[in-house]
Amino acid sequence: MKTFVRAGALALMLAAAAAPAAFAQTARTTADSMFQTTTLNLSAYGETRVAPDKATINLGVVTEAPTAAAALAANSEQMTTVIAALRKAGIPDKDIQTSGLNLNAQYDYVQNEPPKLRGYQASNQVTITVNDLARLGVAVDATVKAGVNQVNGISFGLKDPTAAENAARQDAVKALAAKADLYARATGHRVSRLVNLSEGGSYVPSPPPAPMMAYARMEKDSGGAPISAGELNVRVDITGLYELSR
């Protein structure tokens, strides 16, 4: 029994001693293979331009009155009229969302005197999404005529950016392959294979919010304020790892 125990203990000691050596050998083999292989780690992007098919507008009603209750009541009445005008212009309720409601005291400040309460200001902001751009100018005109006195800007987007993103992806892959081929030839190599490809994210940047034109011009019965949607630039960034050979 003693001989058996000693033999078992010796086997365990030998196995434990062999494990670090095996690990070191594997690490050296991996490192050697890395140095024996020439790789390229490159990035590229693809872009496509497309006309937007939806718009988002942020607008609001600001009212002032001597008391908080009066300011809020006046604001509520005016905003109710605005929302009714939006519905009449063809904007459904699901595309009208309250994005801000504020009530603040207003003070007059005179040097060397304590602030004097002037009254209260109520503000109600709504964000509307217009999915039919043909209705955009009419909707803006309708809201201003209904009492909107604050328009914070307009942005354009895509209901479904998939097709535009896929077109940008194809351009990105072509650009990446061309870049890899250029580097390979410049260094006396050729591209053996694509080892890895990753996408850094795709996005559809909207044009910066544009200030709306003067209300006086909007008041004209011209079938809607002239608003140009322009185009959107859809971009996709990718990164690829290529293996080269002689």
Rank of each mutant, 00 (worst) to 15 (best):
T98C: 09
V61A: 04
V50F: 03
M218P: 05
N58V: 15
E231H: 13
A142G: 01
V61P: 01
G147H: 01
I96N: 07
P211K: 11
T48G: 06
N41Y: 13
N75W: 06
S198C: 08
F4A: 12
V148P: 05
L86I: 11
Y45D: 11
V173E: 08
N102Q: 14
N149K: 11
N233K: 12
S76Q: 15
L241K: 13
E243H: 08
V50W: 07
A225K: 09
A164W: 00
A27G: 08
P115M: 03
V204N: 06
N196R: 13
F156N: 03
T81N: 11
T129W: 04
V126L: 09
Y120A: 02
A16Q: 11
Q97C: 09
A105G: 08
G46V: 02
Q97R: 15
K159L: 12
D93Y: 09
R217V: 09
T162V: 12
L10K: 12
E47S: 15
P208K: 11
A186L: 14
A89R: 01
F156G: 03
L72H: 10
S155R: 13
Q111L: 10
L10D: 04
A180I: 01
N166Q: 13
D132E: 10
M1N: 08
V204R: 04
A70M: 03
V140H: 01
A214L: 08
R185D: 07
A65V: 02
N196T: 14
D132C: 10
A163M: 09
L101R: 15
A214G: 10
E47T: 13
A139Q: 02
A146S: 00
D93L: 13
R193P: 02
Q25H: 14
D237A: 12
A24H: 06
A172V: 03
I227L: 13
E47I: 10
G90P: 01
Y107P: 00
P208L: 08
T26F: 11
S33L: 15
S228K: 14
L40H: 02
E243C: 03
A180R: 02
